[in-house]
Design a protein around this nucleic acid. Structure first.
Lengths: 320, 320
DNA sequence: CTGTTAGCGCTTTCAG
DNA sequence: CTGAAAGCGCTAACAG
């Protein structure tokens, strides 16, 4: 491994000049600089990250939490991760994966947190570096999210306008902000438009939905649309309808949420509220890097920074 | 941030003694050691990773490649990642995500590679740290994999013994070792047992399978079983069969591959060859850490180290 | 068992 | 524009 010194000797300058050629190119005579750069590639020189981190107190490492209880089989997280990684890489930052046991192994310049539970509040508050959340949170941390309230209103309005006269919201039985926002979006829409509707809450598995819909089939006359809080639930609903002999989309509509992958797998490709996760990941990374670059910003304004990225209804074969 | 020196002063010893209390506890008088440990927690001292990396020439960082062209929506990768992260964390190693553009930002002690294409051969060969592949490879790198040949033979044998008399292998149209092994496993089984069979190759999307099966429906008499190279294809096959009015599993059997997640989503839960991905990830991490700990091992024996982890047939509702 | 010395590779002063 | 000195936090190697 070539060091700064190796390059310096070969070029007959001090290592400081080489260092400057890298970090402050304008402070070095152009021809000298070019000669140095030349030698650097010849020697395949790469600055030692540890040494830089030691002297500069910045590691160029960002940590992202991945927890076991996060249902990591959701392709969701991988898309996020890819978006974050790509954005960080453009800025020469590395992405490290943190788990509950390892968030303190090795230093970093900032954290992107997702899947945090109330019981994590303690250590999260003690983190000594800037933090960005993925998903709305009540603790006042900056975050990136989509507007869940408005997304479901859009889905619901679409179903209503397509002429479905009975609307069912199939939600996930968790008391998280994202879910409450979605339910509320549905509720307010059907109330203000005086549409017959009901809300059901299930565990987020396709078979929960299938079982529920079959069991309560009598409650769902033709011209019912199901607005689901995830594609996983939507697939289960679709399976149940087909199994009962219902016609999709002519008699029954199904709308999912996420649009990462499962919507493509469904027998009738799902109409779904598609979250631009790659972009959301990038936005989280950018926000964090900005906070790192401007520490005063994080301190001065105590108000919570929010980046809301719109989801888009992707219309397919499960609605008319 | 407390440093070694802070702890040393508070304890009235030299910082070397503190260092020893951490790294070579047996070389420090027990009572002194306990006092030091006590002060360390009081001061919330954590060794600086950069300083250690600088002096020790080991970063305690492992990089895992995640490429855009890897179809990262496959929950597959996330499971792998989780397994690797968990194992590394137990050994106080951090996991970093590398992309094609960023594999050289920051040092590491080793690489776990997956999704590598022939065009990557150049930079892969130039990596100056131990490497473990995920998946069999022709370039002679150590790897972790499941026995694809034998896994498909098991699936095929299961279908035959269940009394399905016509067997169809639904493969993925790529010329990768994993796929060739699977096809060969099928081929050899049906040949040696003189079973009527055919092989088809499709892009790995459920709708490719649905479309193909519907179009060629006449070729598949009752008592046909489909052995698929992925759960994604299997779901598509199942959808087609149901759509054509075929009975699963009484007249038609479907067997998938992977068993991560999609098998649960299918209308009839899939019988599938379940890869223990979390365990495979852990195994890859362990193998790599062993190579790092014993560099001589990597050099001395030029033969390729292989860790083969058995997949298990998980029987559900799509076969009788 | 404990302390001293030296140095990992780099950058931030401060002098030229 | 360029160089010399000092030090980031830690540990290996040698003394005691």
């Amino acid at each position: 491994m070539a060091t700064l010194n190796d390059v310096a000797k070969r070029t007959n300058v001090s290592k400081m000049t080489v260092s400057r050629a890298i970090n402050h190119p304008d402070q070095v005579r152009p021809e000298l600089r070019d000669a140095i750069l030349q030698v650097m590639t010849e020697l395949n020189y790469h600055p030692n990250a540890a040494a830089r981190a030691l002297v500069g107190r910045r590691t160029r490492v960002i940590k992202l939490t991945i927890f076991e209880d996060m249902d990591i089989t959701e392709p969701y997280y991988m898309m996020l991760l890819a978006g974050i990684a790509n954005e960080l890489n453009q800025h020469q930052y590395a992405l490290q994966i943190a788990t509950r046991n390892s968030y303190e192994v090795g230093e970093c310049d900032g954290y992107i947190l997702t899947g945090i539970r109330d019981s994590d509040a303690g250590w999260v508050a003690r983190l000594d570096q800037p933090v960005v959340f993925f998903g709305r949170n009540r603790q006042g941390y900056d975050y990136v999210d989509t507007d869940n309230f408005q997304a479901i209103q859009t889905s619901t309005a679409y179903a209503a306008q397509a002429g479905y006269t009975y609307l069912v919201f199939v939600g996930i039985a968790v008391a998280e902000p994202f879910e409450l926002d979605r339910e509320q979006g549905f509720q307010e829409y059907v109330t203000s438009h005086q549409i017959s509707a009901q809300i059901i809450r299930l565990t987020n598995h396709s078979h929960s939905a299938t079982a529920y819909i079959k069991k309560h089939w009598a409650e769902f006359p033709p011209n019912t649309a199901f607005i689901c809080a995830s594609d996983r639930l939507a697939i289960g609903v679709e399976t149940a309808i087909i199994d009962q002999g219902g016609q999709v989309p002519s008699d029954y509509g199904v709308i999912g949420f996420d649009g990462v992958f499962l919507n493509q797998i469904a027998a009738k490709r799902l109409t779904t509220m598609k979250q631009p996760l790659e972009e959301m990941g990038r936005a989280a990374a950018r926000l964090l890097l900005t906070k790192i670059a401007h520490p005063e910003m994080s301190q001065a304004s105590h108000n919570q920074e929010k980046i809301i990225i719109n989801s888009r209804l992707s219309v397919a074969e499960s609605t008319r």
